[in-house]
Simulated scan of single mutants.
Amino acid sequence: MTANFDIPATSRAAVITEFGADLEVRELPIPDLEPGALLVRIEAATVCGSDVHVWDGSLHAGGVRPIVPPVVPGHEMTGVVVSMAGDDIGYTGGGRVAMGDRIVFTQGRCGTCYHCAVAGQPNLCSHRRNYGDNCDNHPYLVGGFAEYCYVYPSSRKIKVPDDVAPEWASAGSCALRTVIAAYERLGRIEPWQTVVIQGPGPLGLFATALAKRSGAARIIVIGAPAARLELAREWGATDLISVDDAPDAETRVSTVRELTGGNGAEIVQEWSGAGSAFAEGLDMVRRGGRFLVGGQVGPHHVTIQPAKIMKNHLDIIGSMSADDSHYWKAMQFLSQAKQEFDFDRLMTTRYGLHDVTAALRGMQNLSEIKPVIDPRLLAS
């Protein structure tokens, strides 16, 4: 059964036509729905750092994911259900999807490959259907920077709490759920431990909030620019190291060592994506400590001394994306922690579809923390 709101025949979408070029706003067909699929009207989308890597071609060039323009970018979005192919579509966490519900949703997954069905790691699905993908063929609207988005039947659906703003939920559907999943892999943070966070972008800021919630004694955040570091302080950082004031790795490492009595931190988390951050972070970890790597998606290579890992008895923990439970947990965190953390401070400029290129450039040059794409905003 298919139920419909009043839906147009086409949807405006911002489209990458070639890597690094200005995006075009195009009219794309509203697709027919496969059984179990949904159509949502986008309330808000937010720009992720990996959207910049889709746009500039580095994800494709680095072999992380094949990207073939034209592409509708965007994989962080909140939408209102306006059409559904089926009347028994369930939510992660319980309940049934209904018309008019506000939702976020996971990447599509096959459910039968080794990682989905055996290892319990659907985030590593061999046949994942991504958002922010080619729009030449059905279902066309498979990115968040559009008026409407197609929700794959194999995507898990998560209801957004009424008290969670759409742009918060959008950011929560990628940055926050990624951090929550990583924290589960990291394990317990003791109240006497020091946590170092490399990178005060959206991932690092959410990681700061979770470190505070976890009760860490000391939280050291490293990066720039100053506005991001100040927000990190508001969200729980006890110490800040600006890369503008400490431009070389040796100074940053020695500062961390000084703050920790010469020992280094029990936990270091890499969220910056910077090419030098992995090798640098290794030198900040206390012997016997843990190093969580969640921000390295680029094609760069680094040189390290493997003996440091062995002789210092380090746990190196890689964390990629998340599963549907972490999307649900992200929505609950946003609802429960909104009095403690001003999530509006994470959101910066609002852009219409005609200005997505400016939003991507702002994310690229760090003048924006988390730009919001509002498809209702029209060019003046």
Rank of each mutant, 00 (worst) to 15 (best):
F5S: 14
P8G: 09
S11T: 02
I16Q: 02
I16G: 00
D22A: 15
A37D: 07
V40F: 09
A44T: 12
G49W: 03
S50T: 15
D51M: 06
S58Q: 12
S58V: 05
H60Y: 07
A61G: 08
G62H: 02
P66K: 15
V68G: 00
V71A: 00
P73D: 01
E76M: 00
T92Q: 12
V97R: 00
V97W: 06
A98Q: 14
F105R: 01
T106R: 00
A119D: 10
P122Y: 00
R128I: 13
R128N: 05
R129H: 11
D136F: 00
V142C: 04
A146F: 02
S154V: 02
S154Q: 11
R156C: 06
K159C: 02
W168M: 09
A171E: 10
G172E: 04
E190T: 12
P191K: 07
P202C: 05
L203T: 04
F206A: 05
R213H: 12
S214A: 15
S214E: 10
A217G: 08
I219G: 02
I222Q: 06
A224P: 00
A226L: 11
A226Q: 13
E230R: 14
E234V: 03
W235S: 04
T238A: 06
L240T: 04
D244M: 12
D245H: 13
D245W: 10
E250R: 13
S254P: 04
I267W: 06
V268S: 12
L282C: 09
M284R: 06
R286M: 15
G289T: 14
G295H: 01
G298A: 13
I304K: 12
Q305E: 13
I309F: 09
I309G: 03
N312I: 06
N312L: 11
N312A: 11
H313N: 15
D323H: 09
S325Y: 13
S325L: 13
F333K: 03
L334P: 05
Q364Y: 02
V372M: 04
P375C: 04
R376F: 08
